[in-house]
Write a protein that binds this DNA or RNA. Structure first.
Lengths: 151, 151
DNA sequence: TTATACTCTACTAATTTGGTAGATTTATCA
DNA sequence: TGATAAATCTACCAAATTAGTAGAGTATAA
């Protein structure tokens, strides 16, 4: 399971991506429309800012903007920023490799090989899917849904 | 990341799979050879027993045995028993589906569609890989490793 | 009948998760 | 120039989870 925080981050980015190009969205607007606790969202957006995903404007008329097009922000990088390493085992992490201290050899480890495959499968999806894709998939699903019969 | 407990469970099952057919392995043997805290391993094996993965014999000469061949125990089912639902979102879990309370529609959710793909990719690996596969991959990797030059 | 090995229940310390609270800084507008 | 609106920063907190320990109880084989 990904954390609630990561969910909020991805949904906040979707909101920013849906916003008007160039017009900043304020924390409270995003919090209200996406049902995210405002003070929590503040922290999340600061994290995303530090990592170069969004930028901010202070003062009246301030708010947040995407720093890159939504089609260039992947789920994988956002998840890494918010939840940390994606790998299922520390010894398989690209960004935070750490030997398992109870394990006595990565070659002979009976679970590492299998989880290596898991990690690759996950990464293939997470780094090919972008915020823009998420929006597109959602919009298409809604458009293709059977019309609710009225009456 | 999977939990330490899940790692222990999978390695304990590998140990049982490597053991002599029909000869039970004791908790303390497994704990010693696999570097697992004994009392913690006790609990893990009880969980696996309750879920029909292993069986136990009490008293002298007692111990644990696999209830099914190692080639029929998948990583996925073990992970589910120890760590709970595999899905990245509660609304994507097969065994523990739960609506996201802050989300107002699964079709229109911008992150669900992407994570649905992640979940499928993960499951494809986790439910095709068995304890026997893990052992086989490890043994092959060791056999194929370049001989360490002695001298 | 006793030693051995599994079983059960309870407890605990440390970390992570999912937030709140409040003071501060910066920019805009009147 | 001063009020106001917005982001920023630091600190705190409760609940849940993780990774175990402790110890008494129970079944069984020799």
């Amino acid at each position: 399971m990904i954390s609630q925080k990561a969910k909020y981050a991805l949904r906040a980015l979707s909101a920013l991506a849906r916003g008007e190009e160039g017009r900043p969205l304020q924390i409270s607007e995003i919090a209200a429309t996406q049902n995210i606790p405002k003070k929590f969202l503040e922290q999340i957006l600061l994290d995303l800012k530090r990592e170069g995903i969004v930028r901010s404007l202070r003062g009246k008329q301030g708010g947040y903007l995407l720093l890159r097009p939504a089609a260039e922000i992947t789920f994988g990088e956002v998840l890494r920023i918010i939840d940390g390493p994606l790998a299922p085992l520390p010894c398989l992490s690209i960004t935070a490799y750490r030997r398992c201290d109870d394990c006595d050899g990565e070659l002979s480890c009976e679970i590492r090989h299998v989880f290596h495959r898991v990690a690759e499968a996950e990464r293939a999806v997470l780094f090919s899917a972008t915020i823009a894709d998420g929006i597109h998939l959602a919009d298409r699903a809604v458009a293709e849904a059977p019309e609710p019969v009225d009456g």
